[in-house]
Structures are given as structure tokens and as C-alpha cells.
């Protein structure tokens, strides 16, 4: 069971906190721009090199078994399709409750991630299992809607019982340098979340540069995000190792700066156990072991769970497993 403690923050609180961090008397777009553009630039070659180097670790036997179980416990099991039905969401919840019927010791994923209208269905199916329900909100995946609609979308999901809200930022505003708008939107959504956990999706595939990823990470944390998340999964490229590396550095430095710990969630394109283990190595090496729990690190994935289960079966039985031994999602 994942324990996530979240305090209610109002938009005024967050603005006041941001003024303190920036050391300004009034939070303006100019102040935000100076602060974000004053962040050190990302060394692209160095970043990609380090991400690639961390991906070469060989993780075997007992370490691998631990990594697989840890990764399963960090999954936000996701279905975000226009064709989602109540039945599909229920069967996904059933899978979260019993990931591998052949082995009851298999851990459960951290959460189920669905569209807002499926929250009540997922909540009912999961009962008091402790598995969270995360809802995407704020006109996911494009984020192109008025603020009133985004806030209504968020409140709707929270009222339906969502434990976690995955919001998207306004990439248009971000890319045109209107950081204050992005800040205010995140802060207002955070307020609308109440006690629900807020994950801020930056859609790094649309942010063009690594410098922008770093700026968006800091902006999201400044505005009260409890998690920063790479992507919606609807845009290519989705989560990559270098982008996650930058985000992990950002949350590590943010805790040093403010004392507030923020989580990281790569989402989209993580399909194999090998990929997942690379991310775990990176979390440990870059952010530190404090982040190696479902409370602070999540995978947004759907097919990853099946591959982890196959690898787990291989370790348990000693024979390679096959698709006949996991569910078809």
C-alpha cells in the first residue's frame, strides 16, 4: 500500500512561497523568466552520455528479483484510450489486485491511471485494497481548454474519489515564454486538488530542448506539483532516459533548496524490464535511494507490467515464460 501524504495548498500560499524562493516582492513573468533562465544550462552531450552509461549496469539474480518487485510496485497501470469501457477499466483493476494468479506473492502496482469519467468505476473495483486511483485532468492530453474547464475537470475527478490528479501544462504558454500563466494554472489546479496528489505532466516531447525540460521541472515544483511527469504517452518521443535524468537532478536540487521532496514519473514508451531497471539504477545514482519507493517514483505504463511478470516467472520457475502466461490487456 502506498502512503502519500499531501497537504492542501492554496494558490496564494504557493505564490507566497514562490516569492520567497525567488526573493522578489511580487511574482511577475519577468521575475520567473529571470529565475528560470538563470538556471544552469544542460550539457546535452554529457547528459546523454551519462544516461547511456547508467543504462549499461548489469543487474542479476537477487538484485534483479528485488528490482522487478520494486518496479511492479511503482507502476501506475494505465489505460487512456478513447475506446476505454467500464469493462476494460474493471479488468485492469482486477489485474492490479492480482497481477499474477500463478504467484500470489507478486506485489501490486501503486495505482490505476484512467480518464476522469472512469474514476468511480475504478474506485469501486479497487475497494479498500490501498491501490490508488489516478485521473488525468485539465483537458488531457492537449491541455487546450479554458481555465474554467480545466478546474471543473479536476474537481470532477477529485469528487469522484481520485487520489491522484495528472494534469498537463499549457505547452503553448510555456514555449511562448508566458511562465506566469503556467505557474498560475498549476497553482490553481493544485488548490482544486485539495488533498489529492498532483502530478504535473510537462510533455517533454514538445519542449524541444533539455534546457526547457529543466525550466519546466523547476516551474512545476515551484507551483506546487507533488510529482513531475515526463509525458502524456500520446506524443513521441515520450519518456527517455536523458530527460528523466534532468528531472531527477531537478528534484534532488529542489529538496536541497527548499526541503520539499517531489516525485518523478516517467511515462510512455517504457515497455521492458530492462528499460525499467535502467530507470531504477538512474534514480538511485542521481536522486538517491530516498526516491526508490512508489511514494516518490512511478512508471506510467501498461505493457511494462506483463514483461515484468514474465521476467519474474523466469526467475521463479527457471524456465523462460511466454505470453500465454499473462493476460492480454
Amino acid at each position: 500500500m502506498v502512503t502519500v501524504s499531501t497537504t492542501t495548498r492554496t494558490a496564494q500560499d504557493l505564490t507566497a512561497q514562490a516569492r520567497d524562493v525567488l526573493g522578489v516582492s511580487r511574482l511577475t513573468n519577468h521575475a520567473l523568466t529571470s529565475w528560470l533562465h538563470g538556471l544552469p544550462g544542460v550539457d546535452q552531450v554529457g547528459c546523454e552520455g551519462r544516461a547511456a552509461a547508467l543504462g549499461t549496469r548489469s543487474v542479476k539474480t537477487t538484485s534483479k528479483a528485488w528490482a522487478i518487485d520494486t518496479a511492479i510496485g511503482m507502476i501506475d497501470l494505465t489505460t487512456l484510450e478513447g475506446s476505454d469501457t467500464v469493462g476494460k477499466v474493471r479488468s485492469l483493476c482486477a489485474k492490479a489486485l492480482v497481477p499474477d494468479p500463478l504467484d500470489p506473492t507478486t506485489p501490486r502496482p501503486a495505482a490505476i491511471c484512467v480518464y476522469g469519467d472512469m474514476v468511480a468505476t475504478a474506485k469501486a473495483a479497487l475497494g479498500d485494497s490501498g491501490i490508488h486511483v489516478a485521473a488525468v485532468a485539465t483537458a488531457f492530453p492537449s491541455g487546450r481548454a479554458s481555465m474554467a474547464v480545466k478546474l471543473a475537470d479536476t474537481r470532477d475527478a477529485v469528487e469522484a474519489g481520485a487520489d491522484e490528479i495528472d494534469m498537463v501544462i499549457d505547452r503553448g504558454a510555456f514555449l511562448s515564454g508566458d511562465y506566469l500563466t503556467v505557474f498560475n494554472q498549476i497553482a490553481e489546479v493544485k488548490q482544486a486538488c485539495g488533498t489529492a496528489h498532483l502530478k504535473v505532466i510537462m510533455e517533454t516531447g514538445e519542449l524541444v530542448t533539455y534546457d526547457n525540460v529543466r525550466r519546466a521541472s523547476y516551474l512545476s515544483m515551484l507551483a506546487g506539483g507533488d510529482f513531475i511527469k515526463t509525458s502524456t504517452g500520446k506524443v513521441q518521443p515520450a519518456a527517455t532516459l536523458p530527460v528523466t535524468l534532468i528531472m531527477l537532478e531537478a528534484v534532488r536540487d529542489w529538496r536541497d533548496l527548499t526541503g520539499i521532496q517531489v516525485g518523478v514519473k516517467p511515462a510512455g514508451g517504457i515497455k521492458t524490464t530492462k528499460d525499467a531497471i535502467k530507470y531504477l539504477v538512474m534514480v538511485s545514482e542521481v536522486a538517491g535511494d530516498d526516491w526508490l519507493s512508489p511514494e516518490w517514483f512511478r512508471f506510467g505504463a501498461s505493457s511494462l507490467l506483463n514483461d515484468l511478470l514474465l521476467q519474474r516467472q523466469k526467475l521463479t520457475t527457471g524456465a523462460y515464460s511466454g505470453a500465454d502466461y499473462v493476460t492480454i490487456d
Binding site: Q313, T317, G318, A319, Y320, S321, G322, A323, D324, Y325
Partner: peptide, 9 residues
């Protein structure tokens, strides 16, 4: 042995 034990064969 690995081929004989493989569950997807």
C-alpha cells in the same frame, strides 16, 4: 534444456 523448458515453445 532451455529450448525444451521454454514456455513459449
Amino acid at each position: 534444456t532451455w529450448l525444451a523448458a521454454h514456455r513459449d515453445v
